[in-house]
Structures are given as C-alpha cells and as structure tokens.
C-alpha cells in the first residue's frame, strides 16, 4: 500500500444551486474522505471557491482529482499539495469560562502568544479569535483546553498558491 497523505484541493465551481451537494455526494458516494470543507463566493460572483482537505494514497488522490473534474459545474481543480508551495489559513473561535479574574488574565496572556483577538468579553466568559495554520491552531486549542473550552467553531482551511501562479 502507498502511504496516505493529506492533500488540499482548491476547486473553482459555478456559483450555482446544488453544486456543493454534487461535490459532497461524490465524496460520500465513492467513499473518499473529507477532512474539512470551506465554500464561499469569490470576487467574481459567478464563481465559488471550495477548499477541500482530504487524505488518501496516491491512487485515491488521483481518483479524487479526476472525479472532481468530471463534475460538469467544476471549472478548475488544483491539488495545492503538489502544484507548488502554498499558504493556508484557518480561523477558530473559542469560548472559555472565566469564572475568576486570575484565570482571565492568564487566558489573555496565552491569547497574546497566539496573536489571538478578544471579540467578546462577559463577566463569566470570553470569546477569542485565532487564525493560523493547522499546527498553530492545534497548539492553541490544546492549551485553551486546559482552561475548559465551552464552545469552539472553526472555518475549515482556505489556501492558495504562493507567488503569481493561480
């Protein structure tokens, strides 16, 4: 067996009703994995960008590439993990209980380390926003977990190639 690897696909699709269902259905129907999925309109209103993180061996990844391309509404598929070097970011919102002021101070200090921003603060809770790549977010979440995370929401990865390439 070939080793399994994580791949990030950037998929440009027609910004049309039902396209996401076609992409998601392709993955569930053929037993491919989706680790994370992010969809939004691009600067061109007629096109949406899907960033899809998946994993599999080389043969599976090739199949995913071709099957995505086969969907009629898919304009372009790029495997960012092989097409060149890329940058990736993800955003996470973390809500933590701050029952005593001492704990709140500590949390704010930790947030500083991760360049997190406070976007909501109440007597008993705080909401932080942190962006970064997978490693940074994991480190942050691990630490905040020790303070008791009440709620967590993350966007899934978005990514693009470095330089002038598209």
């Amino acid at each position: 067996m070939n080793p399994e690897k994580r791949h990030i696909f950037s998929v440009l699709v027609e910004n049309r009703f039902g396209v996401l269902a076609r992409v998601a259905g392709l993955f569930s129907g053929r037993g491919f994995n989706i680790d994370s999925l992010n969809v939004a309109e691009t600067h061109d209103k007629s096109i949406s960008q899907i960033t899809l993180v998946t994993h599999g061996d080389a043969q599976i990844i090739e199949q995913i590439y071709h099957h995505l391309n086969r969907l009629i509404d898919v304009i372009e598929v790029t495997d960012l993990s092989t097409a060149g070097t890329h940058v990736e970011r993800e955003l996470v919102l973390i809500k933590i209980a701050t029952d005593d002021p001492q704990k709140r101070t500590e949390i704010l200090q930790v947030a500083e380390v991760f360049r997190g921003r406070v976007i909501d603060m109440k007597p008993a809770s705080i909401v932080l926003e942190i962006t970064g790549d997978e490693g940074k977010l994991k480190a942050a979440i691990d630490i905040f977990n020790t303070y008791g995370i009440l709620e967590l929401a993350r966007t899934g990865k978005i990514a693009m190639l470095r330089g002038a390439e598209t």
Binding site: Q59, E62, Q63, H66, H67, N69, R70
Partner: peptide, 10 residues
C-alpha cells in the same frame, strides 16, 4: 474518461 484510467489496474 480520465477517472477510468488507473482506477482498478495500474
């Protein structure tokens, strides 16, 4: 169909 090639057999 590119997805047919290499699907079952290298």
């Amino acid at each position: 169909d590119a997805s047919c090639i290499g699907k079952n057999v290298p």
